[in-house]
Structure formats: structure tokens, C-alpha cells
Write a protein that binds this DNA or RNA. Structure first.
Lengths: 113, 113
DNA sequence: TAAAAATATAATAATGTTTGCATATAAATA
DNA sequence: TATTTATATGCAAACATTATTATATTTTTA
């Protein structure tokens, strides 16, 4: 079964260094826009744009409190993805023992890298 | 700790419907380019382009057997990601009980959505 | 009520991604 | 050796993403 288009879209939206950082920050708790101004070193409008994109994809939402907007994580897929991103692996998947098992059958050429 | 730039780059490369499908196919075993021609419904040059991008990021590699190129998964992060992508969640993360806990202190405005 | 603070929006330029198409390469076969 | 098969490459057009700048909106405070 192939992951549905929506989930792939979401993945694409998340896959940006600034947005990853925003989401990482949000796993620590609620943050308002000016908090991100401290941790992100990009302009305020740019932060708002990234937040707006994340919100439009349901990744985050906010409460309004006075003149602050207090953002929080909404999409349960995200914390697990962030965990996976940090995971370390030792070595690659081993190359398959022999090839090819394919619709075309086996070809006579010498196998090599 | 923030996932390093390389891993985010990789995520971005993976986050494309065709490439997800290619990687899904490869979790089933070795595939050559013409196998993808059957399962993907895009042109052969386009398939080669996607494979080439995946290879340049270390996601896949191939053996040559005759005139076939037999692609296989190389990046151990990928199978786990594909699993996670298929995972279902029921409902969003619950909104935090109260806000805001921020550098600016608590603002007097009424909290609301 | 005017000014300040916090955030958002719009327009734009720069950049990057994706695909389509034509062509190239390399190996196998006739 | 000419043809066919399998795959790759190069280039350009279409499209999407990103950051920047200026400005707008909303709320609070003076």
C-alpha cells in the first residue's frame, strides 16, 4: 500500500530546515511568533510565512492571546517523524545477494558494480 | 537536537509521489528500470531521472547485469520512513491546556481560537 | 485616541524542481 | 557489423518555492 498523496504533501512541507526547527521547538511546548524570532535568525515575515504554510497543512494551529499567537503542534505524525529523523544507523542496507529477478528474466551479462 | 542538514535534504528528495512509489517498490526487492516502466506510468527518461536523483543522495544503488541496471535500497532510514508514512492516527494532538508560556510573559488578552 | 507591539499579507525577484523531448551510450542479438 | 534493447543525459519550458521588502491588521498601552 502506497502512502496517500496527502501524507506525501505533508512530508514535503515538513522537509525544510526552518520548518523542521519550528516543529522541533514546538515539541517543547507552545511558542509564539516572537519566540521563534529569537531561535531562528530569519525575518519575522518569513517566520509568519513558514507558520502559515504549516498551519494550512494542519501541522500546527494557534490560540490567540492578546496580541500573541500561540502556536502548538497539531499533527500527530510529526513528533514521530522528528524522532525518526534523529535516529542513527550504522552502515547501509547490504546489497542483495544476486540479481536480477525481473519480468525480463535473467540476462547473460556479467554482474558488476 | 536538530536533525542535520543532510537528513533533511534526504527527506526532501524522498517527498515526491513518484520517488515514494519507486522506494516502495524497492522494499519488495531488486528492480530494474523497465520494471518501473510497468508500475509507474511515466516516461523512461523521467524514471531514470528520478532514479539518478535518488542515487546521488545515496538512497539507492544498482548492479549492472548485462544491459539491465538492477536497483536496490541502500539507505536504512528509508524503510522505516515508509512504514511511518503508512501509519494511521486517530485525531490530532490535543491543544495545550493554557497559553502562553513565552519569553514575553503572560499577556492579558482573552484566550481564543 | 495616538503610538507601539505583535503578527500577517502581498508583491516580487531569485532560485530550484519537474517534466518532456531529443539524443546518446552501452550491451546483446541477428 | 548493423540492429535492437535497456538505460542515461542534456537542454529547455513550465512550474513551484523561498526570501525580501513594504505595508496592513489587530491589540494593547500611554
Amino acid at each position: 500500500m502506497i502512502p496517500p498523496a496527502k501524507r506525501i504533501e505533508l512530508l514535503k512541507v515538513i522537509a525544510h530546515p526552518v520548518r523542521i526547527k519550528i516543529l522541533e521547538d514546538l515539541t517543547q511546548g507552545v511558542k509564539c511568533v516572537s519566540d521563534f524570532e529569537e531561535s531562528l535568525d530569519i525575518s519575522q515575515p518569513n517566520i509568519s510565512q513558514h507558520l502559515s504554510l504549516l498551519r494550512s497543512h494542519g501541522s500546527v494551529d494557534y490560540f490567540i492571546d492578546g496580541r500573541l499567537k500561540c502556536y502548538f503542534l497539531r499533527e500527530p505524525f510529526i513528533p514521530e517523524l522528528l524522532e525518526l529523523l534523529k535516529k542513527e544507523y550504522d552502515g547501509d542496507i547490504p546489497a542483495p545477494a544476486c540479481c536480477p529477478v525481473t519480468k525480463k528474466g535473467t540476462y547473460p551479462g556479467e554482474r558488476r558494480r
